[in-house]
Design a protein around this nucleic acid. Sequence first.
DNA 1: TTGTAAGCGTTATCAC
DNA 2: GTGATAACGCTTACAA
Lengths: 329, 329
Amino acid sequence: MKRKENAPTMKDVAREAGVALGTVSKVFNSIPVGEDYRRRVEEAARKLGYQVNSYARGLKTNKTCSAALILPDITTPFFSALAQAVCQELSARRYKTILSLTAFDPQAEQRCIQMVQQNKVDGIIGLTYNPELKVDPNLPYVSIDRHFSRDVPCVASDNFGGGQLAAEKLLELGCTRPLFLRSWAEVPGETDKRWDGFASVWRQRGIDCACLQLNDAEGLAPFRDFLSSHMDGGRLAFDGIFCVTDALAVRIRAMLEELGPRVPEDVQLIGFDGTRRFAGEGFYCSTIVQPITRLAETSVDLLLQEDRSSLPSLVCLPVQYAPGGTTRE
Amino acid sequence: MKRKENAPTMKDVAREAGVALGTVSKVFNSIPVGEDYRRRVEEAARKLGYQVNSYARGLKTNKTCSAALILPDITTPFFSALAQAVCQELSARRYKTILSLTAFDPQAEQRCIQMVQQNKVDGIIGLTYNPELKVDPNLPYVSIDRHFSRDVPCVASDNFGGGQLAAEKLLELGCTRPLFLRSWAEVPGETDKRWDGFASVWRQRGIDCACLQLNDAEGLAPFRDFLSSHMDGGRLAFDGIFCVTDALAVRIRAMLEELGPRVPEDVQLIGFDGTRRFAGEGFYCSTIVQPITRLAETSVDLLLQEDRSSLPSLVCLPVQYAPGGTTRE
DNA sequence: TTGTAAGCGTTATCAC
DNA sequence: GTGATAACGCTTACAA
């Protein structure tokens, strides 16, 4: 797989145009140059099919106009929407996106970091789980959803507020027997706060809130067991369930409909993420919507910030509630 | 956003290790070198935190170990699965992926091509719609799902075979009044063959096959009109529908359930793509599954093929049928 | 084997 | 405003 051996270079353009090398460079950097010179250079470049070699340029300028995006996965609706938003945002600022997938593997995460560092990206936006990730402290880094350290800015949705919002909605919709369900507990992170926020509201009202949090590996069976053990004469002990993600909510809904209780007539369900099936379609379920576009914008903003001495260490973005058929309204 | 001004270079490592520059280079290229030299160099590199600058390397070697992936979008389940597979496959071969999103905009497609050409990627894998896309003929290019020209290899699913398969399944499941539905007709491409294949089977059996193909902009309303105008006393004129994508099938299903006919009891539905809601979950609907992983592998294979003189101009990969709840079995 | 030096395609600093 | 020329960090003959 050999690339063109003799792609035209600035030197060729200079020769063709009969001007000096420096002049050609100036033309391609929008530095003032005599009008007829510019014309000659542009003509020659077009004729030769010349393209700037941004590698050579980067070597000189120490800037590559590229950023790495490190994500566990891109098929999960939330991650894919995030990837799309970040990629678009970078592109809008004329940055290329180098995409690295880690499959939640801490070692792969470290390898990705290495790789993109060698590639001299101008910065990294990462959603990673390795608590002891080593990254060049001189390379701008923005962490999404995970808190790293004081000097690595983290941008996340307002997970605590989202949890509160879910509880308030459920209250408003008449629920009095709440349940919180969570799976795939990862390293301690921003996501924990969804439960904290949810629980705080019920506590304040003096209402007991049930809760089942499962570890990664346990699968979904325990949820089914839990639910069916809380059925009494075809009636579920809960009338409002908050699931830590839309993905979980969808599965729980399926379980419930199998078990008997109807959604949303007998039990209402709220998820978290606000992902959609297909672009332009509705939500999977009633949900707390993460501001994915703003998440992306903010991350890129922070990443490209010239002055890195006074960055916030955490930016929390507001979430919204959206009905999606699993609540009564 | 300034990168570290004084990242250690080979020169620094050489000085630190007390060896010549060339020796350091050899160590990092696994070229034999005295054992104690190697050790000294490695030690020095670790101490300084040295990282190869792959830009400088690429400048010299004319190889960047990176490929561009150009896609319309990454939130659509099919595209996101494809992106993930391609990215993983490239990564397995130590290639970086530069992701460019075009939003189906022919001009954006051209801009992406420009951009990645300037970045001197080693090749491009593109799923594009611009029929007159200009790409450097010396740059390896593989087109997914669209046929370009004789000298640009295209890899696609066996769309014709998939159409046949859908028809055969429907027949096998007892359907006798088939309908084909398609939306978002793009430029003529591989996708057209789904209908060709589907139709051919019915024609062969002497069965009439109804068909409604809509243009991009018309939206979904005409489908609803069509369906309801083909209802007679609560009964639909069709008992088997083949939709050009899963996305369409899901929407049609929703329409049908609103209109009256039950899926799959009264009418069976087959989609195309084989995408899933969440990783590890079932399909959206009964469907013809595209071999996404093989699509990705093949594309990367072809892209990285050293000998570009004898590449196939089209590789068709086999599809499979998978039940997903919208057919009776 | 190890060291030296000439580029790779740019940009940037100068004199002109 | 223009044109040589020296880097940038690396690979690679080729000389030692």
